[in-house]
Design a protein around this nucleic acid. Structure first.
Lengths: 256, 256
DNA sequence: AAAATTGTTTCAATATGTGAAACGCTGTTT
DNA sequence: AAACAGCGTTTCACATATTGAAACAATTTT
């Protein structure tokens, strides 16, 4: 951590640390266990939780433990950045999902990571399911690699300097030179594949979404289990994705 | 304000006051104008904003003014209360919207107000458009009246004691006895009409959604301009809504 | 019945947030 | 060209609001 911490309101920072402890895996917290987790005194933690409760940012569940409250739902729905992208993506994503019958994701690059703005889930039982609003490392996902591929040289160089290529599976690209080569290839062919680079058994194919100026603003992907995702289907999937992407790009025009 | 304010963390409360100043109408704020709006010193406001910025709860837009940040989007997507209701409602709402070609809303009662959890917008140009996550007074909306109609006696009595029936249009019900009669009628006929009670030119029809135990957990509505919403269509709309509601109730079973 | 949890309150100490005034910057008015 | 008015931001002495160990009340576990 750098010294940007100077003159920030510590109470507010602490309050948000508490909120960030609530994740998809751990949705409920008691006072003492949360205090232990974030490293604050239990009294402090208790008072912050009570404050957040009075604001509706957290609330007590049936078992008296705290869960995230509806105020955050309200505020989250007011966030205007990418809001139009998110809204306009819904219908095209659902069309694609219906045709491909795999889960479709829609994401942008934010802080060098993929931020999932929307999704349309596969109608099948066995499917990929990601939390909208969550982040994913870019170098090991199809959407991420597409978005990285269209960065300009200096952006990509600084990304490669900063990032640590941690192996998620035996297929994860862990050499920076190799990643660069892969990204060049992706830019040429206009799509990216993730062949179990993030998770074993999970395959993903992604293509870019351009705005009217020709910049890549987002990417869409289809993800499914390797058992269904056969090589001979790739071209079909790409066709469908490209048609969906064209729809998205059409809608994007209205927002300029 | 009552004395619940004791021992709450004022900084956190102030920070949230700032966040709540951001609405659909006013999405951007400069430091000084926001300070004026919320009544804090500009220095305090500035420091809180800087703190919130470092947390990603706000960020600076293109014109250097502050807008709500993606951290709130992330947190909002993690809110688990009503999350399943929200998710399961999407597909049925879209089916209904396609059939009725008017905007469909899905809401619950929260703090004696209607909280909109989801919507499916009319494909037509002239349409109702509500912010998901926003609140609406219950007594003057169709969804609200349905939800009120199924409260038990003591809940309804305490609602009627607390609420102020402020006329929104010339059709708004402003007498508590009259509202009670209306709610009885609604419970009997199993649907509610809002005939320009909230906004002139706006008509709305709503029905309840039951869970497996037979409690009303939510309501769905179709809203449109009075120019399109003719009396002879009401029965058709009801048919479609009831079929949609049945779909919703079917999905609800899986979550018990 | 004792022990070990939990959430919650108390109170003195001090660390933390406060706000008037000043600063540097940009754009407009004189 | 100079004065002005707006903005976000910094400074610093002061005072208030936050802190945490310890105690408390209420459950649950031993």
């Amino acid at each position: 951590m750098n010294d940007d911490t100077k003159d920030l309101n510590m109470s507010v920072i602490k309050a948000f640390s508490l909120l960030e402890a609530f994740t998809g895996e751990q949705q409920k917290w008691g006072v003492r266990e949360l205090a232990k987790k974030v490293g604050y005194n239990k009294t402090t933690t208790f008072r912050l939780l009570r404050t957040l409760e009075s604001l509706g940012a957290v609330q007590k569940g049936a078992d008296d433990k705290y869960i995230l409250g509806l105020k955050l739902f309200e505020l989250g729905n007011l966030v205007s950045i990418h809001k139009s992208l998110r809204q306009m993506s819904r219908v095209p994503l659902e069309h694609i999902a219906k045709e491909i019958t795999e889960t479709i994701h829609f994401g942008v690059l934010k802080n060098n990571q993929v931020l999932y703005l929307n999704k349309a889930e596969s109608p099948l039982g066995l499917k990929v399911s990601t939390q909208i609003g969550s982040y994913q490392d870019a170098y090991c996902s199809a959407i991420g690699k597409v978005l990285l591929a269209y960065l300009n040289d200096s952006e990509l160089t600084s990304y490669l300097e900063e990032v640590a290529l941690i192996p998620q599976t035996e297929n994860t690209i862990t050499k920076k030179a190799e990643l660069r080569t892969e990204l060049n290839k992706i830019k040429k062919q206009r799509y990216a594949l993730d062949m179990e680079e993030l998770e074993l058994g999970l395959i993903c194919i992604a293509i870019p979404v351009f705005n009217q100026q020709g910049d890549v603003v987002a990417a869409i992907s289809a993800s499914g289990p390797s058992s269904r995702f056969k090589a001979e289907k790739v071209n079909d999937y790409l066709d469908i994705l490209f048609r969906g992407s064209a729809q998205l790009e059409e809608k994007l025009k209205d927002f300029n």
